[in-house]
Each structure stands twice: as structure tokens, then as C-alpha cells.
Amino acid sequence: MKKVLIIGATSAIAEATARLFAKRGDKLFLLARNTEKLTVIARDLKVRGAKEVFTGSFDALDMEAHAGLLDSAIAQMEGIDTVLIAHGTLPDQKNCEASAAETLSAMNINALSVISLLTHLGNVFEKQGAGSIAVISSVAGDRGRQSNYVYGAAKGTVSIFLQGLRHRLCKAGVHVLTVKPGFVDTPMTAEFPKGPLWAQPDQIASAIFKALEKKKSVIYTPGFWALIMLIVRLVPNWIFHKTKL
């Protein structure tokens, strides 16, 4: 049994992952913005075998409240072994290009709110000298692309922040996991036509679960994205700029 905090627990990927924690009999604390949906999810996880399920209301953008929320969640669970940060939005690239406000808001939700949470959590985990911090970043953070670079910049920020945090916390025995999913069929991507590269949330969930058990640092999921992104990162600009990626 582990004590697991899930932030953005109504996300499809987070919910699928929570089912695996529940099956193991974990104690769960779920934070999310939509409390109605959260209640339904909590009820499901309880039936699936979670030892206990706590819930709390959380707005990523209310960063002043983060530290208090985290402390109270950890207190109610009487400790913490694992945290999974999953919330996020997929901003419209064209709208962001037209408006600095849009761009900054996307950065706030996808990068700064995560950094705010991680700053506090980093200290908690460092102090206790154990546990796992898992964050859902994205393959989009590996290289800026014209079609999606605002989201990509936010995820890239998170990935680099996590690299540094891992470097710092490994001395304390704390495990930091960066999860880089490819295309996943979730509400976030409801509008996109789906093809063979698309994965279901439960595939991502079992990859996260295994990576936590094996204390991996960075995972691409499904695994073939490691190869795709290696190529995307290596392609020289003179070719890259000719693509519409």
C-alpha cells in the first residue's frame, strides 16, 4: 500500500493510472477542479480496491493556495509516497500567436502552476528522503514546432525543470519521473482525427505505473515515440524548416 497524491485527477490519463493504484490497494488523495466528476471517479476507485480515497478541490491557477492544499492533503493521508501531476490544457496555437495574454495563460497552466507545485513538493520529498514525483510532460516539449510551440515551450520548461529537480533530489533518495506521452485519445484531443500513432489512456497508465515501480527517469510512451523524437530532435534546421510538423 502506498500513499498517492494525484493532481488533476479528472484527467483521462490520471484516472486510468489511478485505477492501477487502486488495484494495488493504495491510499489516494485526488485533487481536481471539477468536483462533481471527481466524486464519481473517487467512488469508482474505492470499489476497485483503493484503501481510502480523499478528494479536494484544486485550481491550478490559484497558485497562492498550492502549498496549503498540498500540506493538508499530505496531512490527511498521514504521509506521501508518490505524487502524480497530470493537469494541463492544449492551447490553440493560432490564438496564442495572436495574443500574448493567451500565450501567457497557457504557460501559466502548463508550466508555472506545475513549477509552483513542484517547488513545494520538492522540499517535502527532500526532507522525508524518499518517494516518487511523477509529472506528465509531453513529447511536444522536445523540440519547438511551428504548429504547437506554445504548448511545447510549456512542456519543455517542465521537462527541464524536472531534470534539475531529479539531479538535486537523487542525493536525497527521491525518484523523479518525467512522462512524455505521444498522441493519446482523451478529452484534450477530442477534436483531432485519430490514426495508428494514437494510444489509449490505459496504455499510458500502465507505462507510468511500471516506470514508477522501476524508478525510471524519463519515459516516452508508447515506447516508439523515443525513436520518433530522436529523429525529430536530430533533423537539421534546413530540413526541419521545410516540414509542416
Binding site: 464519481v40 471517479i41 467512488r43 469508482d44 470499489v47 476497485r48
Partner: peptide
């Protein structure tokens, strides 16, 4: 795909 409730006395499941 969510479960709602299970009564371990009667074996009654809602989902």
C-alpha cells in the same frame, strides 16, 4: 466504465 458501489455482504454491484 466506472463502478459505483459494491456491497460485500450481499454481493450487489452497481456500475
Amino acid at each position: 466504465s466506472r463502478f459505483h458501489d459494491f456491497d460485500a455482504k450481499s454481493g450487489c454491484l452497481s456500475c
